[in-house]
Design a protein around this nucleic acid. Sequence first.
DNA 1: TATAATTCCTACTGAATTAGTCGGAATTAA
DNA 2: TTAATTCCGACTAATTCAGTAGGAATTATA
Lengths: 130, 130
Amino acid sequence: MKLSTKSRYGLNACYYLAAEYDEGVNGVPLKRLSSLTGISESYLEQIISLLKKSGIIAANRGAQGGYYLSKQPSEIVVGDIVRALEDNLEIVGCINTGCVSGLNCKTKGVWEKVYNAINQTLNGIKLSDL
Amino acid sequence: MKLSTKSRYGLNACYYLAAEYDEGVNGVPLKRLSSLTGISESYLEQIISLLKKSGIIAANRGAQGGYYLSKQPSEIVVGDIVRALEDNLEIVGCINTGCVSGLNCKTKGVWEKVYNAINQTLNGIKLSDL
DNA sequence: TATAATTCCTACTGAATTAGTCGGAATTAA
DNA sequence: TTAATTCCGACTAATTCAGTAGGAATTATA
């Protein structure tokens, strides 16, 4: 049960965006963020694109442009970021959609508890806490 | 971040072994466990083999043989089972082995907290609770 | 002793997912 | 006009997952 590199990389990228949150309104260019984080430009771009779709990151296009957090670091929790990047945090498929096995499965409660524990943990950490 | 079917199936199988824990000392044959759980014999066998390696399940070989829990259901926690089946519960690689990225990563603490939350949850549920 | 029921072991395979790379179009400050 | 930048979609190699298959070893029972 591994977290994808997207989540790890994405959180790291957001950390640097948080660190530079106040400085300059233009945002941090991909190139800079890539060298700060050590992630290739092309892959990092993909990750950022997902974070943009979720409204966590915004961008200024064109020369002198760059990426920036769309909210203050204290208003973004790690759960927001991970949920945007991890295809689903549901550790088993049946948590939100219901069981289709037909068998009377006694284990669903276990996975729900784990799912809740993960989400509570991730929601309890703000970007500003790092 | 999905749990493998091994963990889900394995827990289900253990649930049935727990339900039949007292009855007969010979254990439950693979065939029976397969039809109880709906898991194919060949795949279930693989899963059980892992649980045996971890000492959770034991077996009687030969005719009239079968599998049984090596401890009482109240002495086995779900965490034991999942750790035996999930290749690693470490959601990121650096938790136990340490970071090799060289970059000063600020996110490790996050993943450690999640890792601990998962383990605490799984360790808090006994097989007898299901 | 023969047989049937059973565990044990290892190799194989198809499908899905992950972790990226690459090329070029659109936008914009200077 | 140009250089810096975001945006977008297609492509690929490697890895993992989920499951199948075949046969050897063991043992109760008749």
